[in-house]
Design a protein around this nucleic acid. Structure first.
Length: 747
DNA sequence: AAAAAAC
């Protein structure tokens, strides 16, 4: 039985009062007993559809005017820059972004602009937005206390989109106490309304150092002197305790809590959260922390609950939700960075490609025209290698260096394949998708769509993005209208399958981008479940295809290859190793205490800079620190809501900000024009991570610099890692103020 | 251990 089967026996979840829709859950803030069972979303849908004349595409950022004249693998304008909302807000955002104060200040707007389908039609909301809170005068905003409501509004927005029928205003605060239940442990917090207005606004925030000096705590950079923490329970403890609560087992709750905390102003009685967390993460072991076995005790019964019930579906589902509380019994050792054997590949050389046209590879005229219009006059090697095989109906594994044009390598032939059988002529409402592209992050899914969508559209095919963190309603609408190509991340795709709103049974071409990563722990199982939902043969009896792409494709994908691929063609491009790339790799040997100062100096450059940190907290902290140092910067990591993630990435893409501090969420696939410098504030643990991070620069033959900061103690490990990556890098001792840093910054 | 991925 499929894990997504809709049969009654497969869905005991809803019988256990743990339905999926938040509004129907007694645990959800939106719970309204009288609304239970009522087709809340449907009602909104219909009204909305009428009101807006049914003329909007389901996805943001759709305009065929974008992107002409760019390299062929490059996304067009990022999602969220939809011109239909006019230029005024964009311009205002641009100004704010340029001042570098945009990061937390007006979160609600980003969401509003990017993902909200039809707010203009909804009077109560308009009212809210038309208030003077709009003013971009931050002092004014802060004085009026508008910052805080705007923020909580922002967090609730996605959930609310489909619930216009309930009273919108004041809702957040009314229900806040309910959530407080989760945070009893931190109970000595003053009532919310007594607190100063949320002020991530840098202007009214005390300088960081003061904040800590004043409370007799060491400055944050002084990691070794840790502040006493006895004045409140350890946070990690909170979390474990929370997650052990039966009532909350079925949802993560993490992002809410964290988001909430991260937005809280600094309090005298305890360190700011980011500091707090970072400090904790650098601490190897905590004696006061409950043993891990705690978690396992909690998990064991859950398995029992489903084992032996004869319901394979439930077992599957359960193992998936347990990903949110990852099993801790897998022992981690940093030495685990094993280099797996490369797959034996057919090698194509640049010479073989010379003079080939898109048509030579088997693409039709429309596609050829479109690709040329997108700035790809002729195929890159990886494209020349894989496109014919994809069109021939083979399973394909493609390894191409970062930035070598993999998206078109699968996107274009995929469109061609769909055309073969019906294609645009077969267009009808509610048709099932026939192709699926899976990506590991939402940003990458958006970016792939930005490239694939115009290609598909040129031959009358439609795409849609299916990923989490945004209201699902628009995505469902798209599916209902009928799409040909689904592009998304595993979580939401599984979610919609389970809800019966996404049917992959006619998907005959499936693409895994960053395929090796999709085989990593935590991704593999969802991906396997999704692949099992796809068709095995086309309606013409041909075998359904699977295409696996990555810059670091290795035997790690064997699990997927063995189950889902038949006699795959493996392609790579000769001479496209890291050694031949245009990236200048440097390893800087530094003192730990100098790290901040060195990063500041490196980030001074005029060019775009991407800084990688190991943890979300450190990424956030670094971004703050750089801003405090007068460097316009922003952050990208999983602690941000999706609107911020999208917006912050766009700040860098558009050049409104020159520095982005990110976790490894940005390590793979993300393309931003002209990143000149990649700084690895924390060295990566895996050679693959190094390769993907560094691949954010030096794209399409451009030059770039990658700087990795390590302490001397780590030198040996770093050398081994570089060996595996086959990268040669100079190692240099560096101290703050050294001229070399300015040179590397390209200032 | 961290990161990502659903509500």
């Amino acid at each position: 039985m499929s894990p997504y089967d809709k049969s009654a026996s497969a869905r005991p979840k809803s019988d256990r009062s743990a339905p999926k829709s938040g509004s129907k859950s007694p645990k959800h803030r939106g719970y309204r007993p009288e609304a239970e069972g009522a087709p809340v979303k449907k009602r909104w849908d219909a009204a909305d559809r009428d009101a807006r004349g049914n003329n909007r595409s389901g996805d943001a950022g759709r305009s065929d005017t974008r992107g002409a004249g760019r390299p062929n693998w490059e996304p067009r304008k990022p999602a969220g820059s939809n011109p239909r909302f006019g230029g005024n807000r964009e311009d205002r955002d641009a100004r704010n972004g340029a001042r570098g104060t945009d990061r937390y200040e007006r979160p609600a707007r980003g969401y509003d602009r990017d993902s909200r389908p039809a707010r203009d039609d909804r009077a109560p909301r308009d009212d809210r937005f038309d208030r003077p809170a709009r003013s971009i005068d931050r002092a004014d905003r802060a004085a009026r206390g508008y910052d805080r409501p705007a923020r909580s509004f922002d967090r609730d927005r996605p959930a609310r989109n489909d619930r216009a029928d309930r009273p919108a205003r004041g809702y957040d605060r009314d229900t806040r106490p309910a959530r407080g239940v989760d945070r009893d442990e931190r109970g000595n917090r003053p009532p919310r309304d007594d607190r100063p207005a949320r002020s991530y606004d840098r202007d009214d925030r005390a300088p960081r150092n003061d904040r800590f000096d004043g409370s007799s705590r060491p400055a944050r950079t002084d990691r070794d002197d840790r502040p006493a923490r006895s004045d409140r329970p350890a946070r990690s403890f909170d979390r474990d305790e929370r997650s052990s609560r039966p009532a909350r087992d079925d949802r993560p709750a993490r992002s809410y809590d964290r988001d909430e905390r991260s937005s809280r102003p600094a309090r005298d009685d305890r360190p700011a959260r980011s500091y707090d967390r970072d400090e904790r993460s650098s601490r190897p072991a905590r004696d006061d922390r409950p043993a891990r076995s705690f978690d396992r005790e909690d998990r064991a019964p859950r398995n029992d609950r489903f084992d032996g019930s004869g319901r394979a579906a439930r077992t599957d589902r359960d193992s998936r939700s347990s990903d949110y509380y990852p099993k801790r019994d897998t022992h981690f050792t940093p030495e685990d960075d094993v280099k797996l054997e490369k797959l034996q590949a057919e090698v194509i050389t640049a010479g073989e490609v010379a003079g080939k046209t898109w048509g030579d590879l088997g693409l039709g005229d429309n596609l050829t025209r479109q690709l040329i219009a997108m700035g790809a006059p002729s195929p890159f090697p990886i494209q020349a290698a894989t496109i014919p095989d994809v069109i021939a109906g083979k399973d394909v594994l493609g390894r191409g260096r970062t930035g070598s044009g993999k998206t078109i390598a699968f996107g274009a032939p995929l469109a061609e394949k769909l055309l073969e059988h019906g294609g645009a002529k077969d267009r009808k409402m509610g048709r099932k998708p026939r192709a699926l592209i899976l990506a590991p992050t939402r940003e990458l899914a958006m970016q792939i769509d930005n490239t694939v969508q115009p290609i598909a559209r040129s031959v009358g095919l439609f795409t849609t993005q299916i990923y989490g963190g945004v209201p699902q309603q628009r995505q469902v609408h798209s599916l209902q209208r009928g799409v040909d190509i689904v592009i998304g991340t595993p979580g939401r795709i599984e979610d919609l399958i389970e809800q019966g709103r996404l049917d992959l049974s006619e998907v005959t071409v499936t693409v895994l981008d960053e395929a090796d990563h999709m085989c990593d722990l935590g991704f593999l199982e969802p991906v396997q479940r999704i692949l099992r939902e796809t068709a095995t043969v086309t309606r013409h009896g041909a075998r359904a295809q699977k295409l696996l792409f990555s810059a670091t494709l290795d035997k790690g994908v064997a699990k997927l290859v063995d189950e889902f691929l038949t006699d795959p063609a493996v392609h790579e491009v000769a001479g496209e190793d890291q050694a031949s790339s245009t990236i200048d790799h440097r390893v800087l040997l530094i003192e730990q205490r100098d790290k901040s100062a060195i990063i500041e100096q490196l980030a001074q450059g005029k060019g775009k800079t991407l800084v990688f940190a190991r943890t979300r907290a450190f990424a956030e902290q670094l971004a703050d620190q750089l801003e405090d140092a007068g460097i316009a910067s922003t952050s990208l990591h999983g602690d941000l809501n999706q609107s911020r993630r999208t917006r912050n990435l766009q700040l860098l893409t558009s050049g409104r900000v020159n520095v982005l501090v990110a976790t490894d969420v940005a390590a793979r696939g993300i393309h931003v024009d002209d990143i000149e410098l990649v700084i690895q504030a924390d060295a990566p643990d895996e050679y693959k991570t190094y390769m993907h991070r560094s691949g954010r620069t030096g794209r399409a033959g451009k030059e770039g610099t990658v700087v990795t900061l390590i302490t001397r103690a780590r030198r040996r490990r770093m050398e081994e890692l570089l060996d595996r990556a086959e990268i040669k890098a100079k190692m240099v001792d560096v101290r703050p103020g050294d001229v070399l840093l300015d040179e590397l910054a390209g200032a």
